[in-house]
Simulated scan of single mutants.
Amino acid sequence: MFKVESYKGDREDQYQLTIKQLRALLEGESNAIANLSNAAALLNQFLDRINWVGFYLVEDEELVLGPFQGLPACVRIPFGRGVCGTAAEKKKTIRVEDVHQFPGHIACDAASESEIVIPILKDGSLIGVLDIDSPEKNRFDEIDEKYLQLFVDALVDFLK
């Protein structure tokens, strides 16, 4: 699951370690763009079998591309469109086993086969989404969903 070969824990232990590393990495920094950039880089370092990880931020009733790791991406996504826009509109995590079966999927990277999108909520308000794509079908499961939500919850503490 994770690229770090020397760590021998199970996936849940690895996610917990990654969340601890996120908190340590962001401690004392208040700039949201810097914190989102490091969060994307951290996930890109530790998650395997992914081809894109990053953030879209809410601006005027749509999502606008934020810090990410991967190929150039779609810049603006309206609420309700694609996996990201649907997750934003519903304020609910969406895990897609096969993006080609998702109605209205926006193909920013033709290699993407599966996707998970976690809304970022602060004080009940949507501020953005975490989007992760994989070149494998059915890449993300319940463990990923649970711990990526915990990752986002930890990240929100460092966003204004």
Rank of each mutant, 00 (worst) to 15 (best):
A41H: 13
G124S: 06
C84A: 12
N35G: 11
A88V: 04
I94W: 01
P78W: 03
E113I: 01
V83S: 00
Q45L: 14
D109A: 03
K92Q: 14
P78C: 03
I50S: 09
D98Q: 05
G85V: 01
G66V: 07
A88H: 05
G66D: 07
P103T: 08
F68T: 10
I33D: 09
G104F: 08
C74Y: 12
W52T: 09
L36Q: 12
G70W: 05
I120V: 14
K90L: 09
S114T: 00
L126W: 04
N31D: 15
F79V: 07
V83K: 00
E113S: 11
D98A: 01
A39E: 05
A32F: 09
L63C: 01
P78N: 10
C108K: 07
W52P: 03
V99Q: 06
A111R: 14
W52F: 11
L43V: 08
G104Q: 06
V58N: 01
V64T: 09
Q45G: 12
I77E: 06
I127W: 04
C108N: 03
L126D: 01
Q69G: 09
R95N: 10
G104Y: 10
P103S: 13
I77R: 13
A88I: 08
F46T: 13
L43I: 06
V64P: 04
I50H: 08
V75M: 14
L57K: 08
G80L: 06
H105S: 04
A107G: 04
I50G: 11
A110P: 08
L42M: 12
